[in-house]
């Protein structure tokens, strides 16, 4: 079986029913007008909103996994990452590997010491890059990126794009990426899903 994520009859209050399959290593873009349901699709896949239907990860049913296990493997990264403690390292998953952290920080061009930085003093670019590192430390199989670069300059945007690409290649993981930016869409390439009024409308390749 070479399907990493297999979604059948996924349905929420405003979405679906829709089917979707994603291969390992694939980066799938999700587009559509605002309010069409792009975020709702990602939130449903991360099991953050009530939904019905069948979702399988590597042939393993979502409902057979604890919610905590599921969300570590299918990681949702919002447009604006939330921080609640005083320092960056308070927000990292327990028992993460230091080696992995260093590798990921290098990918997003941040120094080792950034894990001890104060949240107050982070720029929005640093927050989004650290937000990505934080999510990747769980070693997710599927990344759900909900406009992760929406408020960033081009330099930071490209750092995040590169880091995601590198992660997908190294881990043979997949990503669903919601983006409004046409240039970004061209850079990312691959399969593009369009959502209209909660339904998958068409699939294109760029």
């Amino acid at each position: 079986m070479d399907r990493l994520l297999d979604v059948r009859q996924l349905k929420t209050a405003q979405l679906g029913p829709l089917d979707l399959a994603v291969q390992p290593g694939e980066l799938v873009q999700v587009t559509g007008a605002s309010g069409a349901g792009k975020s709702l699709l990602l939130r449903a896949l991360a099991d953050l909103d009530p939904n019905t239907g069948e979702i399988m990860l590597n042939g393993e049913a979502r409902d057979a996994m604890l919610p905590v296990q599921w969300r570590r493997r299918v990681a949702y990264v919002p447009a604006e990452t939330a921080w609640w403690g005083e320092h960056v390292d308070e927000h990292l998953p327990a028992g993460f590997s230091r080696e992995t952290a260093l590798h990921l920080l290098e990918q997003v061009a941040l120094p080792e010491g950034s894990l001890g930085w104060e949240i107050e003093r982070l720029s929005s670019g640093e927050k989004q890059r650290l937000g990505l590192v934080r999510a990747l430390l769980n070693k997710p199989r599927v990344l759900l990126l909900d406009e992760p670069t929406a408020n960033l300059d081009l330099e930071n945007t490209k750092r995040i794009e590169r880091a995601v690409r590198a992660y997908l290649a190294e881990e043979d993981a997949a990503a669903l990426w919601v983006s409004h930016d046409t240039l970004q869409r061209q850079r990312l390439g691959g399969r593009i899903l369009t959502i209209h009024e909660g339904q998958l409308e068409n699939t294109a390749w760029s």
């Binding site: 953050l48 969300r71 570590r72 990681a75 919002p78 939330a82 934080r134 769980n138």
Partner: peptide, 9 residues
């Protein structure tokens, strides 16, 4: 914040 923590497992 709560949903961010849930999303992080």
């Amino acid at each position: 914040t709560i949903e961010a923590r849930l999303a992080l497992g």
